[in-house]
Amino acid sequence: MKTKKIVSYAFLALVLLFVYAPILVLIIFSFTDAHIIGQWHGFSFDLYVRLFTVERLRNMIVNTVVLAALAGAISTVLGTLGAMGIFYAKKGWSKSLQGASNINVINAEIVIAVSLALVFSMLAFNRTYYSLLIGHVAFCTPFVVLSVIPKLKQMDPSLYEAALDLGATPAKALFKVVLPEILPGIVSGFMLALTLSLDDYIITSFTKPAEFDTISTYVYNAVKNTAKSELPAFRALAAVIFAVIAAVVVVLNIRANRKTNKKIIENKEIKR
């Protein structure tokens, strides 16, 4: 019995090690300034300092985050409106519209990227920050639609009518009743768009202006020609990103736990 438990724990540890070992190595070596990973030149915060002082690095990080925030925000608005349009369209239309929107979710990214690039060159549109932003929005919007529609479907359809019944104009009913109801879907759509945009490489490289870089395009180029490389600094960046994500996940978990506990307590009170 006991050995069985030990074996199962050992196995679990092995799996976790397999998944997290590369990241752990990366984090450890982010605290030394050796150029080649594996060498230890003594403990230092140098890489972290460089991350925020070397202008090119700093720009690129800011670029990526701002781009993701903008693309996420715009595609959330468009996607939410689109989802409502699809949901409230006539039955036949609704199905085909949703299908059309889903194609882009399943479609290979490279196809979207190439077609976007084609469209921009056809319109004699130079590759600018705007073409990049449009590319990201076009890519992310269907995902937002996809995460909002289920919430609309779950919503009791009489809620909207109840709001109208109580004197709300259609616009007011939308903002006061429908939006709060589907908010969880909108938020998760936004998060999805944000992460998709943050680590996108293919679409970015097809639509970005030459002198502009996001983290992914920069890393890719840096790997290709190591000469001018600020590569070691990315170990620090990776560690930071990992820390942020881990923190977010932990916070979300704690909050979710608290909520269910609260529900249970409330229910108990009612029973009493």
Binding site: D156, S158, L159, E161, A162, A163, D165, L166, V177, P180
Partner: peptide, 11 residues
Amino acid sequence: VNTVFQRYALF
């Protein structure tokens, strides 16, 4: 006119 819905439709 105000309505009491078949399934309440409370917000």
